[in-house]
């Protein structure tokens, strides 16, 4: 039952190019549940892993629309309906004067959506994660490149997968405990 206690098997690489090559190999061998960990974003790697589309731009657009419409309605309602007051002869619905606040509300809600949306899509905050159990993983935020094949992959087998990863020229391979 040793296998069930594992989160996956992790390989460490010196160079980004090796990692990208390894990801391509692993994917072509039919592994599906894998993730790569790098000290900085690498566009090529994202292509190799198949991360193409993100939901975020659409969420942000939606947030902007909600903010803008809400901001305008707030001003319209409070100035023309809830507390109509003649200010310097300006119309109750002084739409030109409402544009700046409408704009600010659009930006505010869109920006909040961008940040919260990014965190939600990434499942953060997550104080602990099995990959942190690998001691050398601390270098993922410095200069090393990691590839983890997860145990939930149907093709996963601790020993065989580790052997396979060793064939990709990593510097280390480690089992990731849950």
């Amino acid at each position: 039952m040793a296998q069930e206690k594992l989160y996956g098997v992790m390989a460490e690489f010196d160079r980004a190019e090796q990692l990208i090559e390894a990801v391509k190999q692993v994917r072509s061998h039919g592994f599906k549940k894998l993730d790569a960990y790098t000290p900085y974003p690498i566009e090529e790697l994202q292509h190799a892993l198949g991360h193409e589309k993100s939901l975020l731009p659409r969420l942000v657009l939606l947030g902007g629309i909600v903010g803008g419409v809400g901001g305008f309605l707030l001003q319209y309602w409070s100035s023309a309906i809830a507390y109509p007051l003649n200010i310097g002869g300006r119309p109750l619905n002084s739409w030109p004067a409402f544009i700046p606040v409408t704009f600010e509300c659009t930006i505010l809600v869109a920006a909040v959506t961008a940040v919260l949306g990014m965190l939600a899509l990434n499942g953060l905050p997550m104080p602990h994660h099995p990959v942190f159990n690998v001691r050398r993983f601390a270098l993922a935020s410095r200069n090393r490149y990691f590839l983890c094949i997860e145990a939930r992959d149907p093709k996963f087998d601790a020993a065989k997968t580790a052997a396979f990863l060793w064939s990709l020229n990593p510097t280390h391979v480690a089992e990731v405990e849950v």
């Binding site: 993730d35 790569a36 960990y37 790098t38 000290p39 900085y40 974003p41 690498i42 790697l45 994202q46 892993l49 991360h51 993100s54 975020l56 731009p57 942000v60 902007g64 704009f103 600010e104 930006i107 869109a110 920006a111 961008a114 940040v115 949306g117 990014m118 965190l119 899509l121 990434n122 953060l124 905050p125 997550m126 104080p127 602990h128 994660h129 990959v131 942190f132 993983f137 993922a140 935020s141």
Partner: peptide, 27 residues
């Protein structure tokens, strides 16, 4: 917040960062 440099995370992260830049500019 438990950032681990996952490639999937970087993907959303970069999107969010550039979107924030796009929003901050007119702001």
């Amino acid at each position: 917040m438990g950032w681990r440099g996952s490639s999937a995370h970087w993907h959303n992260y970069e999107k969010a960062y550039i979107l924030l830049a796009g929003l901050a500019t007119p702001l």
